[in-house]
Amino acid sequence: MRPSQQMRDLGIVQYGAPVLRDPAHPFTLPDERETIDDVVGQLLHVMERIRRAHDFYGKGLGLAAPQIGIGRSAAVVQPPESAPIVLLNPRITDSSEDRDERYEGCLSFFDVRAQVPRPLWITVETMTAVGSTEKVVYERGEARLIAHEIDHLGGLLLMDRMRPGVRPVPVEEYRGTAEATGRPWSYE
């Protein structure tokens, strides 16, 4: 079974679906608390099914609501060995000028991996379920995961972030790279 078919069977919307290109609708907080709880609950449920089916090699896992067919501005990121990070109406307000280019995968077209430049740190403004605003700085691997999911909420896919001339590689080819070692991303 192709990796993309496996993700489709687990409930992940695949590349080509319009919901992946439409900007997600923000929540009105705190008025939509029940809707938020429902959407975040669905994201966590699907992430658990994905974790049981696939090993993410210590690089973490993220899922945005559009990837499960919900056009709302919510995402959950699960960094390796850390608690899940819930993002509601998130936006990047600042980022480092320094960039790092690493392979990324996307559950919505899991047959390929692509080298994507991302900032080494980002500042993210997000809402809490009660309507307050938080700003958090994320670095390195967490910054990469979170930026990828925020892109999904804006209708952007990782190929939109690739440098001109860079093409995705089939997952079978990626498995032969140094980054496919089963170790977390190294930023040393």
Rank of each mutant, 00 (worst) to 15 (best):
G154I: 01
L158Y: 10
A143N: 08
D9N: 14
R113L: 06
W121Y: 06
G141Y: 02
Q6M: 15
Q115G: 02
I92C: 11
A65T: 08
P117F: 10
L44D: 05
H148T: 04
G60K: 00
G71I: 07
I70W: 03
G176D: 08
A74G: 05
R51C: 08
Y138F: 15
K135A: 11
M159H: 10
T123I: 10
Q6T: 12
P168L: 07
I122G: 04
M162H: 02
D151P: 05
V19G: 07
R175A: 14
E32N: 06
G182Q: 12
L88T: 03
D151C: 06
V46T: 15
V166F: 11
Y187T: 03
L157S: 00
I85N: 00
L153H: 12
P168K: 06
I122C: 09
P80R: 00
I68Q: 05
T177S: 15
P26V: 08
Q5E: 13
E104K: 05
V76I: 09
E139T: 13
D31W: 03
D22E: 13
G182D: 08
I122E: 01
S4R: 09
R167F: 14
A143R: 04
F110Q: 03
H152L: 08
Q67Y: 09
G176W: 00
T35Q: 11
L158R: 11
G60M: 09
D37W: 00
L29C: 07
P80N: 09
V77P: 00
E149R: 01
A114I: 15
S95N: 05
A178F: 07
D55Y: 10
D38K: 13
V19M: 12
D98E: 15
C106T: 05
P80L: 04
Q67C: 06
Q67F: 10
P184Q: 10
L107S: 11
G60R: 00
K135T: 13
P164V: 12
